[in-house]
């Protein structure tokens, strides 16, 4: 019988796919942002906040940030699984990373809709 570990990666295909889909989303957003910043070399506060004033931009930014947090979870989990062997410490780091990322998600909503 296979020894199942709670802190393992299950079968991996979902994570593999998630990592690539979120990567493409972030790459497109990064290219958009890089292009926008190139078009606005002397960026001032009004221009910057105008970009984030519409709900469409806020929603897409939040979507990409959530993609980023999922991507970070898969990446951090892979790193921890490779280098941290004791199950207890591994679980502790996993929980801390997940809690941090959920907090970042809540913080992101506050930033984008609280401005």
């Amino acid at each position: 019988m296979v020894d199942r570990i709670v802190t393992g990666a299950h079968y991996g295909l979902r994570s593999w796919l998630l990592q690539r889909i979120t990567a493409v989303m972030m790459a497109l957003y990064a290219l958009f942002m890089a292009g926008w910043l190139l078009l606005h070399p002397d960026l001032d506060y009004d221009t910057w906040t105008l970009l984030f004033s519409s709900d469409v931009m806020r929603s897409f930014t939040l979507l990409v940030l959530l993609a980023l947090f999922s991507h970070a979870w898969v990446g951090m989990r892979d790193i921890v699984m490779d280098y941290v062997k004791p199950a207890g410490i591994r679980l502790l780091i996993h929980v801390l990373v997940i809690l941090a990322l959920i907090l970042y998600a809540i913080w992101s909503v506050q930033i984008l809709w609280g401005m």
């Binding site: 910057w48 906040t49 984030f52 980023l68 970070a72 990446g75 951090m76 790193i79 990373v97 941090a100 970042y104 913080w107 992101s108 930033i111 984008l112 401005m115």
Partner: peptide, 20 residues
């Protein structure tokens, strides 16, 4: 990737300060 993960709070903080 690890460095970018560790810098996430700084990124969000910068975004917050740039918009607030």
């Amino acid at each position: 990737g690890l460095l970018l993960f560790l810098a996430l709070p700084l990124l969000l903080w910068t975004l917050q300060y740039s918009l607030r």
